[in-house]
Design a protein around this nucleic acid. Structure first.
Lengths: 248, 248
DNA sequence: TGTACATCAGTGAACGCGCGTTCACTGATGTAC
DNA sequence: TGTACATCAGTGAACGCGCGTTCACTGATGTAC
């Protein structure tokens, strides 16, 4: 069984490497929670793992690369949570899916406030995000787009007056500037092909609304008003669903 | 004229003090733009002013106090911009006022991105905001509340069916949980007394929407979708006005 | 299967830099008689 | 109006700490014959 699996043969060392890479990121995440991204310290991470600081350079070529890895992980973790929520509520229709996804995003953010701040808070000064973050960052929008597509399919099927609907849609489109319509078309192509631009813009609005609420909640802007935010959040989601609208 | 003005007599020194206090904050703001709040360094500020670092302690007892002053200044500066916009469009009615205020908030944020991040971005790790920030932070909500009050007055005057309106309002209120209704009542008391709770909640939603969009724009989430964001922003504001609604 | 060599993980010392805060001090500005 | 004293701004040295990154090294793990 020598060369049965080249992965397995390299593993003793490689597995240790993968393991330590994971532990470094975990320790870094714990640090995030204590000091925030801008103050994340390689030396402190190494200390926590009982390593000498220079050892980390075998795993990440620089502090920024470690940060990038954390950012990608955060987007992926949030994306997974959203996808899982959509899948779990798959049978309940897009409206239930939308609700579930919004709740899952909020739940993830509250459970991982520092990772949330890392990806949706102020940019880390002096840090430039590489292209690798784009894909993972798009996972939540993709989930929302899929639900809108499902919703549109339902509405099309049950429409009693397709011509009227189309007329209304084009009237709405006329209120949009060409620039906005073009941007919406690009977004549609990426997350929900075939969905009319006005609906796409409403989804963009809902998207900013969703993260706006979560940021306000986590960053303390609701103190003295919608705090605790559970009921406000729930209500706002229902309003969103009615506004876009997402079919049930 | 010896004791004509006690302020003037103390002034030589006091004016110098006020002046330097201002210069310190200005230099600190410049630093913010370069390195961000978490890395704001007293020593660098002192260096820029040609002072020795310990001299700053005559003006601010600690780094956190300087940060607090910057935060309060930022809220005040944004609040002033919003108030000025509302006043300038005072005659054009609440709808024009709402538009103007939203634009002014965005304009201020784009002109002062680091101060915006300071107050609406991730909290500075290890920094606890004192009570003094609450008042200045409430200025934008207060402006919005005033516009809603004006709008409600117009709607009440031109209502053809007050009973129907009241009925619809109470139907909406029934969809709200008691907790949310109570929160809305408190907010109403603070910014728009007498405005029905469902309308207040819509204003809260619009408020989170407004800052959600601005944060996404400044923090780079729109890259690849609504970037540049001018048209999207304008469209979203109109949707907001129609949704609340704000009378013209 | 056993040996010779290459790869790579982790060490420890060092470079060169930064920070917030304290403290005793000098000298100028203001105050009271 | 002039002098004696108190207030306060700014200095410079120091304390005790942190950081990212480089580099020559030891010793263990893996590879090829």
């Amino acid at each position: 069984m020598k060369a049965a699996s080249p992965n397995a043969s390299q593993t003793a060392r490689q597995r240790a490497r993968a393991e330590l890479t994971r532990e470094i990121k975990e320790a870094a995440r714990r640090q995030l929670a204590e000091t925030g991204a801008p103050q994340l310290s390689l030396r402190a991470v190494a200390r926590e793992l009982g390593l000498v600081s220079s050892a980390l350079y075998r795993y990440f070529p620089s502090r920024d690369d470690l940060l990038t890895a954390l950012i990608i992980d955060a987007y992926d973790s949030l994306g997974e949570a959203a996808e899982a929520a959509a899948t779990a509520n798959g049978t309940a229709g897009p409206r239930g899916g939308w609700r579930a996804v919004c709740r899952a995003v909020r739940h993830w953010a509250r459970a991982n406030p520092h990772e949330y701040a890392l990806i949706y808070g102020s940019p880390v000064p002096g840090y430039q995000a590489p292209r690798d973050t784009v894909g993972p960052a798009a996972r939540v929008p993709l989930v929302l787009g899929k639900l809108v597509l499902e919703s549109q399919a339902i509405q099309a099927a049950s429409a009693t007056d397709p011509a009227g609907r189309a007329g209304r849609a084009s009237a709405l489109r006329e209120q949009m500037s060409p620039v906005l319509a073009a941007q919406a078309a690009i977004v549609a192509g990426a997350i929900a092909p075939g969905v009319p631009e006005p609906v796409i813009v409403r989804v963009l609005i809902a998207w900013t609304q969703l993260f706006g609420m979560i940021s306000f909640e986590l960053f303390g802007q609701f103190v003295g008003s919608a705090d605790p935010a559970d009921d406000f959040f729930g209500y706002a989601i229902e309003q969103m669903i009615a506004y876009i609208p997402i079919a049930g």
